[in-house]
């Protein structure tokens, strides 16, 4: 099947989406009852590594992780570690993953998000926090459920625009 040529991308959408995700991270919300919201920056790291592997890679994921750490007042390097792992895992199988059907992609995203959350828990337990219950992992399922919508919306930025 001939795939349509993607338009020469601009980084505008990439920057914009990450800004939005960071804004969501800074949202003033109640402390409890929101753990099911996934880490949007992490989901976006998966998306952009998958679709723009030449532009967005492990180094940028790591830098964004540091920004997220500052925004969420968590330990320095916690998100950086998780995001660079996500980016790496996507990058080594990127050429397979872009050809997957949506269902397969959802399963992969679920696995990746669960892995990233497990890594976060391990890091936090190692640095002396309390375990906060299995409900924490619900965020991964939400992320996987939102993935089709997210990738359809963000794919608009990669479609060739109509000739004017």
């Amino acid at each position: 099947m001939p795939t349509p040529l993607l338009k020469p991308h601009t980084t505008r959408w990439l920057v914009l989406s990450f800004l939005l995700a960071l804004l969501l991270e800074l949202l003033p919300i109640e402390m409890t009852g929101w753990h099911w919201l996934p880490n949007w920056v992490g989901v976006l790291v998966i998306y952009w590594t998958l679709h723009l592997p030449r532009t967005f890679g492990i180094g940028l994921a790591c830098a964004l992780g540091l920004l997220t750490d500052m925004a969420s007042a968590s330990l320095f390097g916690q998100h950086a570690l998780v995001f660079s792992l996500l980016s790496y895992l996507v990058l080594i199988r990127q050429r397979q993953m872009v050809m997957y059907s949506m269902l397969q992609q959802v399963m992969v995203v679920l696995g990746l998000m669960l892995l990233s959350q497990a890594l976060t828990v391990v890091v936090r337990l190692a640095t002396g926090a309390a375990f906060i219950g299995w409900g924490y992992f619900a965020a991964s399922f939400v992320a996987a459920a939102v993935w089709p919508l997210l990738s359809h919306v963000l794919a608009l930025s990669l479609q060739p625009s109509k000739q004017r």
């Binding site: 030449r54 890679g57 492990i58 180094g59 994921a61 790591c62 992780g65 540091l66 330990l75 320095f76 390097g77 916690q78 950086a80 570690l81 660079s84 792992l85 980016s87 790496y88 990058l91 080594i92 890091v123 640095t127 002396g128």
Partner: peptide, 25 residues
């Protein structure tokens, strides 16, 4: 040419973030 291999880059980043983690904690 695309710079160092993904594994190299990943290892660099993870070492950096682990150092930061320990340094911060």
């Amino acid at each position: 040419r695309r710079g160092p291999k993904p594994l190299t880059r990943f290892l660099l980043c993870s070492v950096l973030s682990l150092t930061l983690l320990v340094g911060d904690a």
